[in-house]
Design a protein around this nucleic acid. Sequence first.
DNA 1: CGTAGTGTTGAGTCAAGTCAATGGTTGTGG
DNA 2: CCACAACCATTGACTTGACTCAACACTACG
Lengths: 245, 245
Amino acid sequence: MKFGHPLELLVRSLELQTTLANEDREAVLALPYTLRTLDPLSYLVREGEKPDKCPILVSGFAYRQKMTAEGTRQIVAIHTPGDALDFQNLFLNIADHNVQMLTRGEVAFVKRKDMQDLSLSSRKIAEAMFVKTLIEASILREWVVNVGRRKAPERIAHVLCELGARLKSMGLDGEYRYELPMTQEELGDAVGLTPVHVSRTLKLLSEEGLITREKRSIGFPDWERLCEYADFVDRYLHLDVRVSP
Amino acid sequence: MKFGHPLELLVRSLELQTTLANEDREAVLALPYTLRTLDPLSYLVREGEKPDKCPILVSGFAYRQKMTAEGTRQIVAIHTPGDALDFQNLFLNIADHNVQMLTRGEVAFVKRKDMQDLSLSSRKIAEAMFVKTLIEASILREWVVNVGRRKAPERIAHVLCELGARLKSMGLDGEYRYELPMTQEELGDAVGLTPVHVSRTLKLLSEEGLITREKRSIGFPDWERLCEYADFVDRYLHLDVRVSP
DNA sequence: CGTAGTGTTGAGTCAAGTCAATGGTTGTGG
DNA sequence: CCACAACCATTGACTTGACTCAACACTACG
């Protein structure tokens, strides 16, 4: 999929929940930015730092992460193209977690100041940003549930469902198949399991016929059944909910 | 601790991170509200519903919760007096989780419309609300880490630290002792453990001299040591961070 | 005084972790 | 173009942290 303007996906993402006026769309597309291609593991935000730029993911994947004192890592969010990676930093001065590239990909860096001005100039855009933040919080709540209360197979199935639903909502991948953008170790860090157990669990899921695998490409022979199995209900993604005008 | 006005704690809470002008403070205190005393388990927000009022916790404790299909419960947030319990609903139309009273307490209900008008009338207040939302998201990220990557003793110690730090920041309880506002079963639902294991773990923590217990009152003989043990670093609470003007 | 809601403790089980060896891929540099 | 290294995934054997089931004690309260 090709886009004329790197920020077009951001607009599309904002418009999933909010209706923007033409001038709002244009204001977003008029944002000055620097486009860079980054390798996996590149840091976009570092815990403890005060960032002055707002990165927007144009292609590839990124994730949010925190380390424990023991040295274990927990991935707390996965980001897909079109996601703004730090509305946070517009209003909080110190990053409380890290943001890194998951795959190779392009990022548009917008100056903190320009982003602030944009949100000040249009109430619609400010609202859209707020809504996006609320949805991120909603996803975090579901992750707490996932990690706190579901067993390994359901837990992994659940993130597979979430990723699939989110990719589909942005029109980013085929219907019932996508390329998992991470290693099993990273998947484990996202769901609070060890890589070994992730491997065994994926094997189990495909033995049950819930998924098919070919390298890192995951297929979903029966999407409904998998959602049922994983206790995946997409309400928390607020994909179809238009906010009142 | 006694307050003249039920919404005074909300103002104080907002002012932890933001500096409000006098007129902003007065605008908040001028909000029309209905004060009600609610029993434990009373629902303030129900998943799937579209709420038309914005509850603000005046006294007592509340929590956010989601149920899995299996019937297990996960508590995803605990709220202390002064917390607004749904800025969310100002901008998202369908609740994706439940909010309930944890203890008996008072709640001021503000009309959704009045709250929206307030956020429209003052940029400072809108910003303060946004900041509060971002901090809730930050706490959620730490909860994902807690539940996903820490073992039972550290995990429970961590929430004890968090509650202590938050209560202290609002001047709501003694220095190094507070009354735990929940049963061990509820504590377990907050950290993804069974009540039996919570009981054993609390016992272990007090045998290690990390906490003292008397009924539900928890004491902290060596706060620093407990924080160290629990890997508790309060940065994610953004307590002392004033946002730039 | 009985009952319901808590918290505690013990014994046994099970899910997930640990450690370790093996095999497949990819990419790189001689 | 091959050899090697680095990374990733898989599998087996064993350990352990947390769960389950069950019994019992304590308290508050009608």
